[in-house]
Design a protein around this nucleic acid. Sequence first.
RNA 1: GGGCGCAUAGCUCAGUUGGUUUAGAGCGUCUGGUUUACACCCAGAAGGUCGGGGGUUCGAAUCCCUCUGCGCCCA
Length: 877
Amino acid sequence: MSIATKYSPKEVENKWYSYWLEHKFFQSQPSEKPSYTIVIPPPNVTGVLHMGHMLNNTIQDVLIRKARLKGYNACWVPGTDHASIATEAKVVAKLKSEGVEKSSISRDEFLNHAWDWTNTYGGKILNQLQKLGASCDWDRVKFTMDDDLYESVIHTFIDLYNKGKIYRGYRMVNWDPEAKTTLSDEEIIHQEKQGKLYYINYHVEGTDETLCIATTRPETLFGDTAICIHPEDERYQHLKNKRAIVPVVNRSIPIIQDEYVDLEFGTGCLKVTPAHDENDKMLGDKHQLEVIDIFNDDATLNHYGLDYQGKDRFEVRKLFAKELEQKGHLIKVENHINKVGTSERTGAVIEPKLSDQWFLKMQDLAKPALDAVLTNKEVKLFPKKFENTYKNWLENVRDWNISRQLWWGHRIPAYYIGEGKNDFVVAKNADEALELAIQKTGNPTLSHADIHQEEDVLDTWFSSWLWPMSVFDGIRNPENEEFNYYYPTKDLVTGPDILFFWVARMIMAGYEYTDQKPFENVYLTGIVRDKQRRKMSKSLGNSPDALKLIEEFGADGVRVGLLLSNSAGNDLLFDEALCQQGKAFANKLWNAFRLIQGWEVSTEIEQPEHSKLALDWYAAKFQATLSEIEDHFSKYRISDALMQTYKLVWDDFCSWLLEIVKPAYQQAIDAKTLKSTLTLLEDNLKLLHPFMPFVTEEIWHNIKKRTTNEALIVATWPEQANFDVQFLKDFEITKDVISGVRNIRKEKNIAFKESLQLKLINNENFDAKFNTVVEKLCNLQPLQEVNEQVEGAFSFRVLANEYFIPIEGAVDVEAEKEKLFAELTYLQGFLKSVEKKLGNEKFVANAPEKVVAIEKQKQEDALAKIETVKTSLEALN
RNA sequence: GGGCGCAUAGCUCAGUUGGUUUAGAGCGUCUGGUUUACACCCAGAAGGUCGGGGGUUCGAAUCCCUCUGCGCCCA
């Protein structure tokens, strides 16, 4: 049978993915086995697969596949979230392109369009994940707007409201005038922007005097209700208790004093606009100032803006500055860099705005979430460094504004009865609301027509914070079998950018509703950037097409490429070369298999000594590496685990083991060696499978015919056994001897075909059994031990052993001497450093015995080696 | 302005409670190679004194201080 010299992933990947699906290997049901559960961070339903998803989901798949091999009942729950703002924006845009304005249709009509959109375009990303090899239980796909999850959200809202944790408040919120909704603090990106600082004169009422304020936002002047000065500011003492006149508007406003004013900034005079700045709001509350809101919902000015009514805030800024200038109020304009909040979703500049919103009190919820991570360590963050950030946020947590002025999402279950601020009830549905309303008002004649449900929906995170529970129906039905079996989940893999607004809140919800952690370990991945450290973004066009990458390098190649350079928490600088490396690795593995598979077996041949040794060595090496790999996994160092596996397979298995056991050209291999080699290859495949599921399953089935139950995906992870450390060390020395010979061949340009002699002075008393390995790999005649320097030979040393390759007449004595001198210099330098330590009385007295012993051993070794080098030098003289 | 973190080979990173031969890996670079598994390969080499300075210690990449540069979070 001839197989291609190059591994081609495409058909193989489709074949095995269908096979796994068909045989339901990804499916999980509660069983006797211990559970290992991961819930996917639900991607946005509007999303398409990007590099961040690829990394994130590759890591989850590695963890879940490894758990499956280790005999856990592995369950990976996939799903998407409804992404209120993003989805609503897409639907609005689509309707607009069809000539329909959102404002012209009813809420129900709009929701129908949104569902159509979701059903048509949504969830595409889940299909894309399959290409990556994701072994999710696809029978469990969830969506945050599914009926059961919707109910869970509503249930939670009502419960928290009844517990007194949800309240309505008139607060300063972050208003996105483009999406026309509020945003949470976390959804805002602060950017430095080049702006201007305008110096504007106000008349002091009843005098000829003026005072000058500095502002970055002259257009908010329409909403000014005070001027503020510092009580200790020498410059303005005479203004105390006077009033100022707002230019153009001609409104009289008080001049107040507050230590809040920064004496150094601008003129030391601050205009106060309580409706449009958080700090001004605070001043306004303190000094009982009037509040004048000058903006419409789309950030155009309302009637307070006088002539500018209906015009956009930025346009007004320019026009109004001009008017102020013409009228002599504008003194000067300076360039000024200030930080501006922009919407993560729409990019619009955020407008601080006062409005009625729903808030969730965070103080009590934060406490157990803080303890879980920092005190009880029930939830562990990887890498640990994020604990500080987590702590910082939770200790300074602010109430969560959970309402959004949108239609797409979970509609807040509050029903208004009248105009008053507290004239509402919270209930599961209109009927229950009516009942409550009658109770509350004592008016039995109320009907459905008298109550009206809140128009706003809940923040998307208010549904995803329940995700680990709600996907198993743990909110509505906490005693159900699945929830008890799968929850708490095991690992959560996500980005540090949502540590607060998702991870922390899930922990809060977990303790609030189950008194338990929602997951045990949180692995925080880095952000995928390009080679120049720029974030991948659509606008930069620096994000490669994920599916094309898979097409080009194979899913295994891309997975390996992404993982290789990614350590937890560090950003990943993506480079296609990494995928190329992954692809090459798959090909290497494929060819190793081809080699073994192509050997002809003979039962007549005895197992050669070198093969037996090499197989024993690899078995030991495998065990040593396995323990390192397990250690890496236990610390969530996935890339280190992969690199260990990579080197084990490429270097140890292919470059050493296979080269040693490989029969000579057109010779057969003995049956024993072949059998052992195949077993070892199978063990390799098990270790590799979580990283490279496709190529490993393919080779697994090519090795021999297997039944469904014998598929690699459900094989058994190799068991950890003891291994002989000394044996491994001896083999390393053997490798050094081989390198020594190879070096001489290379330096002296001696072809491999030319068989050589190797003689040694065995000062170290090495076991001669390793000689056969050296002979095989270096094409040598049987090694000979000698007692004296061999003349007319190239030489090298390994530890205190001396090796000689006799070559007639070809030895350049001077060159040899030079080489020996270099070695001698190094050794003497080394010896000096060791002896310096040993000569230090304090070192000998204070250092642990073990450390001193090591230094003494180093000294002895160095002395012995120096001796051999010197002897060689003398021999050349 | 407050807080946190980082700085080790050309690049990306390891280096676990300070001590196992004058610091490791992968990639890249360089040198050689038509050994029929693989050039998506094989063999080999060069390359850092651990950002600068100071301190603690018998001993510091590792602990402390300070300076410089960078990143992140919060205001």
